[in-house]
Design a protein around this nucleic acid. Structure first.
Length: 920
RNA sequence: GGGCGGUUAGCUCAGUUGGUUAGAGCGCCUGCCUUACAAGCAGGAUGUCGGGGGUUCGAGUCCCUCACUGCCCA
């Protein structure tokens, strides 16, 4: 005999064991299908790759819990289920991490090391620490295919990135040019629009007087950034602004500098803002840059890559931009040019990665011409080739796509995919090439220097849906692509909808159109998409609905909570609240509740183990052969409660299935919870105690019940398994061990997901059980009211129709067990008085000689009466309404009539009971 | 400024195409160590569905409006 389960559920003692087992046994690795894959039986999804520098946070855990539930569910349904994990090289984050490490060591800097040695260092860092986050995933039991794990800088993926760049360039979709970009002066690279956040801060609006060159007067401009005046090339006023008409075409003398600059008319100048006159600094402001273009103005750059003033000979040369501002304002004041300083709230662009204030900077960058790609991406969603859940993200996506800007894909970093372009030292031509070129294609010169920029990290992650399946740019259909592309689903957060989701759609639609279908035919847009569906989940907040943030200090570490309550409980908490579009307020109290749920199941398993043991000793054998315990044919003598539990199991299976198909993790989790605790444990386990008398002479009912008990529990474990993989794995193996059968699979995760059709669904027994449950609950309530001591059994009287009377009579053993009923007397008149209670289905009285609390009873009855009155009035109001009777569907009218009649009867009975109450 | 969402029990949230008298979990109150489980069992209380107006026989659900609130974009 197997060893007994410990008395209380202790997740720490089982989880690591199974997590390790799943990985070591390679249970979730999927080989490429040999023949043609059936798309309807294939479930493929890509894990949104966490940063290699990352640690798991609650958002990851929610994301992965949802993905894991879906993957485990599909796998158990027999689908080829591939969940591909990997990590992102995270250009900026990783480079920063290593630079910080260098700084801490204090011996060298990135610049001193040089590019090659530095990237070596980063690789070393990656080898040492890069698996931290995937190790956390392993611990949490994510059922990913580790054999397919990738890193975005892997040789194979890098080749694909290079190829896609070259092709986009050859297609004329990549260009290089000097534009204003968002410059992060801390890490000293351009970042994309998406990587910039705006923050409101208190600042000042400086009014500065610029004198006319002809000495005929002056004009006052307003600016929030006086230090950029060193790069001013004009002052703009609105052409409609009459205050400045006379100034147009004249020149101003730039204070402190002495340079002459023109006054130009431009619509951008807002007469309402400041003084209506704005300085124009094309190299340091995107709007000014546009003005400069319109008026053919030069764009002198006055800052270096650290955002320090770079103006040889200037007294401000070398100063940090904010220091320069102070000095310039002081000097302006001294020179009498500072008119006033007003308080002003300004919106500052801040780098998402470093927190540094972005410096708009004119610089040479690589761009991806996005419109042609966006057009296809818009079409793919409009035509329904990709479905969003919740649906409103379709609109968000569409809006963004329609207003999309060209994508700045170059980064001035050392860690990343280096752009495959070589500059010719002789003629300046750009050579974009798959292989390192030896001479310039234009002039034949050999002085080729590779571009130093790398590609935006999102460029490579945007290719993942096909690069992970072996796409190398050759348009060859690899076996993995044939079997697994497009993937079925992408589960992710809305924060990377534009960063990643939209880019995968654009790049997928672009490149995959050229890869043929498995049958050799031309691929259409419908099959070029990277995924069929996108499920966008919400944010995990703290228990008070506050966004988690390091500064607020309310960040919940999933690993800590998991250590405290178990992975299953945390997963269940997240799942039970994961309703599409709703943020999750994560509260430990709730997790505690789901640990209690796990404990409940644990103890149910112990109960079963004890019964199986008792059975064994008495010679009752149970067997659990196949894991798909199909119990469609119930023997005739099967007791009511067993018929009922099978029917309920069947219905719940259908409910869970439907909910999961709709991404209603909350509904699915709650259905399993309710079934396991509220029906299986609360009712079925109590009722089977009646049957499990292991007499020496074999009792058919006992044998049958024991078999059913084990079979229902085993199926329920499978139903719960996608949600709580650890405890179900443990108990499932323990159950087979108790029974003495070898388990039919290495893991419960490889068994069949229970289906509604697997179990007999006897509707009549459900109805009968419902009535009995109602009777039991009513009697329990009455007993409490009458003050019957818990342990004392009492007789009851029941008045009901023949069917219900017979039911109560035949199941008096249930009533005895669950409601302490000593005997059931069927009576012809409805019992009245203090110890009676009326329901729509029956009247019941508990026979007990004790004075009740008249005051409390009166209060209760009056409350009931009020409730019945209210209901009755509502019903009558409708029934007396001709329009309602005429127009409402018949079943609604009939239902209401029936209900009204029942309510009237209950009301009369309550009134009678009230009248019968003795005066106080 | 533009767009999207939310407001239902003390808390966190469900509520399917409008249809009978609005639900769950947690918390709360009362009584129980009933040999699977006190991380438990049994019973109980709790809502003018944000305000106002409209459509309809019928509105938590649809429309308008106001208030509060969150997010995204500029």
């Amino acid at each position: 005999m197997n060893q007994e389960l410990p008395k209380a559920y202790d997740p720490s003692s089982i989880e690591e064991k199974w997590a390790k087992f799943w990985v070591e046994e390679r249970l979730f690795d999927v080989a490429t299908p040999a023949g043609e894959a059936d798309p309807d039986k294939t479930f493929v999804q890509l894990l949104p790759p966490p940063n290699v520098t990352g640690r798991l946070h609650m958002g990851h855990m929610l994301n992965q819990t949802e993905m894991d539930i879906l993957t485990r569910w599909h796998r158990m349904r027999g689908d080829t289920s591939v969940w591909v994990p990997g990590t992102d090289h995270a250009g900026i984050a990783t480079q920063m991490m290593v630079e910080r490490q260098l700084a801490a060591e204090g011996t060298t800097t990135r610049q001193q090391l040089g590019r090659e040695a530095f990237t070596e260092r980063v690789w070393k860092w990656k080898e040492q620490y890069g698996s931290a986050i995937t190790d956390q995933m392993r611990r949490l039991g994510a059922s990913v295919d580790w054999s397919r794990e990738y890193f975005t800088m892997d040789e194979r993926l890098s080749r694909a990135v290079k190829e896609s760049f070259v092709r986009l360039y050859e297609q004329g979709l990549i260009y290089r040019g000097a534009y204003i970009v968002n410059w992060d002066p801390q890490i000293q690279t351009a970042v994309s629009d998406l990587e910039v956040e705006s923050e409101e801060r208190a600042g000042s609006l400086f009014h500065i007087r610029y004198d006319l060159a002809d000495g005929s007067g002056s004009l006052v401009i307003a600016t929030t950034r006086p230090e950029t005046m060193l790069g001013d090339v004009a002052v703009a006023v609105n052409p409609t602004d009459e205050r400045y008409t006379a100034f147009l075409g004249k020149n101003l003398i730039l204070p402190l500098v002495g340079r002459e600059i023109p006054v130009v008319a431009d619509d951008w100048a807002n007469p309402e803002f400041g003084t209506g006159a704005v300085k124009v600094t094309p190299a340091h402001d995107p709007n000014d840059f546009a003005i400069g273009q319109r008026h053919n103005l030069p764009s002198p750059n006055i800052m270096d890559e650290r955002a320090h003033i770079k103006l040889e000979g200037s007294p401000y040369d070398g100063l940090d931009r904010f220091e320069a501002r102070k000095r310039i304002v002081a000097d302006l004041e001294a020179a009498g040019h500072l008119v006033t300083i007003k308080d002003h709230t300004l919106t500052l662009p801040v780098s998402q990665r470093t927190g540094a204030i972005i410096e708009p900077r004119l610089s040479m960058q690589w761009f991806l011409k996005i419109q042609p790609l966006a057009d296809k991406a818009i079409e793919a969603v409009d035509k329904g080739y990709i479905k969003f859940t919740p649906d409103n993200y379709r609109k968000t996506y569409g809006e963004w796509m329609k207003n999309i800007h060209d994508w700045c894909i170059s980064r001035q970093l050392w860690w990343g995919h280096r752009i495959p372009a070589w500059h010719c030292g002789d003629c300046g031509a750009i050579n974009v090439s798959r292989e390192t070129p030896t001479d310039c294609t234009r002039c034949g010169g050999a002085k080729l220097v590779q571009e130093t920029d790398v590609l935006d990290t999102w460029f490579s992650s945007g290719l993942l849906p096909f690069t992970v399946f072996g796409w190398d740019g050759s348009d060859k259909l690899t076996p993995d692509l044939a079997a697994f592309y497009p993937t079925q689903l992408l589960v992710t957060g809305f924060d990377i909808l534009f960063f990643w989701v939209a880019r995968m759609i654009m790049l997928g639609c672009h490149f995959m159109l050229d890869v043929p279908m498995p049958d050799g035919s031309q691929r259409t847009l419908a099959d070029a998409v990277p995924f069929r569906e996108v499920y966008i989940h919400a944010l995990v907040r703290d228990a008070d609905r506050q966004k988690m943030s390091k500064t607020k200090g309310n960040v919940i570490d999933p690993i800590e909570v998991v250590t405290k309550y178990g992975t299953d409980a945390v997963r269940f908490t997240l799942a039970s609240q994961a309703s599409p579009g709703t943020d999750i307020a994560f509260s430990e109290a709730r997790t505690e509740g789901y640990r209690a749920f796990a404990n409940k199941i644990w103890n149910a398993a112990r109960f079963l183990q004890m019964q199986i043991e008792r059975g064994h000793e008495a010679g009752y054998k149970v067997s659990l052969g196949a894991h798909d315990s199909i119990s469609l044919e119930l023997p005739e003598q099967t007791p009511l409660e067993t018929r009922w539990i099978f029917a309920r199991l069947s219905t719940v299976c259908a409910d869970v299935e439907r909910s999961l198909a709709d991404y209603r993790f909350d509904e699915a989790a709650n259905a399993v919870y309710q079934f396991f605790w509220g029906e299986f444990c609360d009712w079925y386990l109590e009722l089977v105690k009646l049957r499990l008398e292991f007499t020496a002479e074999k009792n058919e009912i006992t044998a049958l019940t024991l078999g059913a008990l084990v079979s229902v529990f085993e199926a329920a474990l499978r139903l719960l398994s996608p949600f709580m993989p650890f405890i179900t794995e443990e108990l499932w193996h323990a159950l087979y061990a108790s029974v003495g059968n070898e388990s039919p699979a290495k893991s419960i995760a490889l068994t069949r997901f229970p289906q509604a059709g697997d179990f007999a669904n006897d509707a009549l027994s459900v109805e009968a059980m419902n009535t009995l449950q109602e009777l039991i609950v009513t009697v329990r309530g009455l007993r409490k009211e009458l003050g019957v001591p818990e342990k004392e059994a009492t007789p009851i009287q029941v008045h009901a129709n023949n069917r219900i009377s017979a039911l109560a009579d035949a199941n008096s053993d249930m009533l005895a067990r669950l409601a302490r009923v000593s005997s059931v007397e069927l009576v012809h008149e409805a019992p009245t008085g203090n110890s009676a209670r009326a329901t729509a289905n029956f009247d019941v009285a508990v026979i007990y000689e004790r004075q009740i609390d008249v005051v409390a009873e009166r209060e209760r009855l009056e409350k009931d009466l009020a409730k019945y009155d209210k209901g009755l009035q509502a019903a009558e109001r409708q029934l007396n309404n001709e329009g309602f009777v005429a127009k409402a569907p018949a079943h609604i009218v009939e239902g209401l009539k029936k209900q009204a009649a029942e309510t009237r009867a209950l009301k009369d009975k309550a009134q009678a009971a009230l009248d019968a109450l003795p005066a106080v």
